[in-house]
Design a protein around this nucleic acid. Structure first.
Lengths: 248, 248
DNA sequence: ACAAAAGTGTTTTTTATACACCCATGC
DNA sequence: GCATGGGTGTATAAAAAACACTTTTGT
């Protein structure tokens, strides 16, 4: 308490003035490798201080005239080429001292991070290596210690991914136009774990909802009966928007 | 397309440079007036330009050394006195041009808003009028046109409130220590609408979950049978954390 | 005695869960 | 013909929804 009042003498000058910020955008970019049943997250190796040479989420600072979402799309397109993706804002981390570039207890500029969460199609995603430093898909279970507070951001993004998958149709943004129910099921199990639902029940529930339409086309993958190809019908899905827990 | 390339000549100087930000925090503060069955949101009248004299969400700019959440608590405590509340971050709005103080297409500073969502106990909330301009609880259905993009923020907060109520125990942060099941039910109906559930079913579901304990105390409110007073048992609730859709 | 508020119980319908089983294809 | 992946069906348990009914108080 007495420590506090000591502080109060020094504070008024500083505390009353507004902080100046640089705003960064950090992306948690997921993709699902169905073939290997792995959930992957995109990491890049820092080329600058701080945290030079350490793995981080891909991020950037926001430029003049650029919206937050624009910045998020910019980093994304600097790192990977994709046509299909889902992207949404995640959370904003902005405590003082979260970035080492902020001189401690100074009038210096603060660094705030608005994080975005993205899910991209693994098969078509093409990583853009700049030839200087690393970029890689990391299986979620093998992510190392990251720079900044990026492990926390990633954890936040992972939780969001699992929730989103349960009640919104983001899977279809990342599946090909035509897909089998097994493709869909595998995507779900890879993210949510094996025991989230039995295949037969998953199937029955989804088909009953009525926004997956059977194209009649069949695809044969090696041995076994050929699978029907389905298409996601966005119009038929419309009435389910805003309704909780559509899937699983 | 040719318009674009013209732009490109002018851009590099500006677009490549980082934007400087002031960061604001805007609060969507809800309370539930059970007596009158109204959901209320706190609005304040702006004392400064821009939007002087117009109703807005209570907000402030973040100061040196202050975290976002600290700023959110600061405005809150400048406007109302409360002991019990729930508060969480909502969303970050940061497009260029969202604040009129940004000179259009200039090098000037950008204004970004991190919004927070709060639920406070109506009965104990004491509004702090500064004697200069207005502050008031507005029924959600009667909110006027607000300054900035605050109607959008409010809408976002309203949706969050309804969702949160369904799967997390925020109601208990805002009910008195001891409450009747009717108090709880009325809070729910006021926010979610009359037809979200039948009282008897609501009651049965909640009691079965087992984190409401009957204190044995009774309270009599006018005519009719006295009601049991319950207490929320946070420990007994713990296992339900992270499980979706506990209520309703 | 009766209206008002609180609380209990019952019936019906729908959904979830766990399986067992049939179908079509490649080898 | 049999392993493999695809697809259907059924039986049981649990949850949601609708609604009728009892209990306890004030007046």
């Amino acid at each position: 308490m007495s420590g506090r009042s000591t502080k109060k003498i020094a504070d008024p000058v500083k505390k009353q003035t507004l902080a100046d910020f640089k705003v960064g955008v950090d992306n948690v970019i997921f993709s699902v490798d169905i073939a290997q049943n792995r959930l992957l997250v995109l990491l890049v190796m820092r080329r600058d201080e701080p945290f030079l040479g350490q793995w981080c989420l891909p991020g950037t600072l926001v430029r003049h005239g650029e919206s937050l979402e624009d910045a998020a799309y910019r980093i994304l397109s600097e790192k990977i080429r994709v046509n299909n993706l889902y992207l949404e804002q995640l959370y904003t981390f902005g405590g003082p001292g979260r970035d080492p570039r902020e001189a401690p207890d100074s009038f210096g500029v603060r660094y705030l991070s608005v994080s975005y969460f993205a899910l991209v199609r693994f098969a078509e995603a093409e990583l853009i290596a700049d030839g200087v430093s690393g970029i890689a898909w990391y299986p979620i279970k093998q992510v190392p210690k990251l720079g900044f507070d990026h492990n926390k951001i990633l954890e936040y993004g992972y939780r969001r991914l699992r929730n989103k998958l349960e009640y919104s149709p983001i899977a279809f943004d990342v599946l090909p136009e035509l897909f089998t129910l097994n493709d869909l099921y595998q995507l779900y199990t890879t993210v949510l774990g094996e025991n989230f639902s039995d295949y037969s029940n998953f199937r029955a529930r989804l088909l009953k909802l009525g926004f997956l339409c059977d194209t009649g086309l069949k695809i044969s993958r090696g041995a076994g009966r050929p699978a029907s190809l389905y298409r996601f019908d966005a119009e038929a899905f419309a009435p389910f928007k805003d309704k909780p827990l559509v899937f699983i």
